[in-house]
């Protein structure tokens, strides 16, 4: 029990601090790395709760795909982050308001669960200690929800076709040099003579 509590507070602490570091860090690459740390500790929290499938999915999808995509974007595109950050004081009141509302909602939810006679969360079925939840999800996903699973696959296929239809251009046909244009060029089009002063450059 003690070990569990220690692990919880450790991962929760890391999660919150690294989330804070994401918005505070000056270097965008560091921000993304802190984001990955935050995702990983959230995944650890899920595993502590017994939801190991959700935890692993979080690592596979968010860390493996989304965060790496962020890294690519941050490194490849020339985004001026100091400019993005410049309006911080303007947006602060609105952000604080939204955060405050969220905090109140969280407190309300917490209070409701404390008052007796309200709904209690249902126990997971099948019970966690008999079937790991990866098994449980797999068992209904490929039987009861088999058909819906297939349709979701078709939707992904459509998304792929759509992206290709709307963006793929056929390769430019002509790759060699056109001889006629080359012959038609005259020296006056392409050569320029200039008087250059010594040690001054063009």
């Amino acid at each position: 029990m003690i070990l569990e509590a220690v692990a919880f507070y450790f991962f929760a602490g890391v999660c919150v601090t690294s989330a804070l570091a994401v918005i505070i860090a000056r270097n965008p690459v560091r921000s993304v790395l802190f984001l990955i740390l935050s995702f990983c500790s959230a995944a650890a929290l899920f595993i502590l709760l017994g939801a190991e499938f959700l935890g692993l999915i979080l690592i596979v999808v968010y860390v493996g795909a989304v965060a790496v995509l962020f890294l690519f974007v941050v490194m490849m595109l020339d985004i001026d982050f100091t400019e993005l950050r410049s309006g911080l004081l303007n947006y602060l009141p609105v952000g604080a308001l939204v955060g405050f509302i969220l905090l109140i909602e969280l407190i309300l939810v917490f209070l409701i669960t404390l008052t007796p006679g309200t709904t209690t969360p249902k126990a997971p079925s099948p019970p966690l200690h008999t079937t790991p939840n990866t098994n449980a999800i797999g068992e209904i996903l490929y039987t009861d929800y088999f058909f819906l699973f297939q349709i979701a696959g078709v939707i992904l296929l459509v998304a792929m076709i759509g992206a290709i239809v709307l963006t793929l251009r056929p390769p430019v046909q002509r790759k060699g040099l056109p001889p006629a244009e080359q012959i038609a060029r005259s020296p006056s089009d392409s050569v320029e003579t200039r008087d250059l002063v010594s040690r001054r450059g063009a």
Binding site: L148, I151, I155, V158, A159, I161, G162, V165, L166
Partner: peptide, 13 residues
């Protein structure tokens, strides 16, 4: 919902 999305995505394209 899945059926709606399937036809919707095709129609957007």
């Amino acid at each position: 919902y899945l059926a709606l999305e399937l036809q919707g995505l095709c129609l957007y394209v």
